[in-house]
Amino acid sequence: MYWVWMLIVSLIAGIIFGPLARLVLPGKQNIGLGWTILGGGIGAFIGGLIAYFLDVKDTDGPDWIQYLIQIICAAIVVAFISSRTGSSKTA
């Protein structure tokens, strides 16, 4: 049950972590908002798993380390999606 709940929360977190991931990436990502949110959700889920296995979740107050791990993973996933689906324009 924990994994299903984490998946749902991660997809919702993708709304926030996806655009944050794009902010930390250098350059322009030629992907749409849907891909950004999906990449953020996937990255948040992967980051949540990493945080779970590193036992950094469920601390007192906000889980800043978990959020940082999730944003880093979201940035990696968004960069990967951008390299695969983004349209490249050459001048």
Rank of each mutant, 00 (worst) to 15 (best):
W35S: 12
W35K: 13
T36C: 10
T36E: 05
T36Y: 02
T36M: 02
I37R: 02
L38Y: 09
G39F: 00
G39M: 06
G40F: 10
G41C: 04
I42C: 02
G43N: 09
G43Y: 07
A44E: 05
A44W: 07
A44I: 12
F45M: 02
F45I: 06
I46K: 00
I46N: 04
G47L: 08
G48I: 00
L49W: 13
L49I: 14
L49D: 06
I50C: 05
I50F: 09
I50D: 04
A51L: 03
A51P: 03
A51F: 04
A51G: 12
F53Q: 10
F53S: 06
F53R: 06
F53P: 00
L54V: 06
L54R: 11
L54N: 02
L54G: 11
D55A: 12
D55N: 12
D55L: 11
D55E: 15
V56W: 12
K57P: 00
D58M: 12
D58R: 13
D58K: 11
D58P: 02
D58H: 14
T59C: 12
D60H: 15
D60A: 15
G61W: 12
G61I: 09
G61K: 08
G61L: 06
P62C: 08
P62G: 08
P62L: 14
D63G: 04
D63C: 11
W64M: 12
W64Q: 07
W64L: 13
I65L: 15
I65Q: 14
I65E: 07
I65H: 03
Q66E: 08
Y67K: 01
Y67R: 05
Y67A: 11
L68I: 13
L68T: 15
L68W: 03
I69K: 11
I69F: 07
Q70E: 05
Q70V: 06
Q70F: 01
I71Q: 04
I71E: 05
I71N: 10
I71R: 00
I72K: 01
I72D: 04
I72S: 03
C73W: 11
C73L: 08
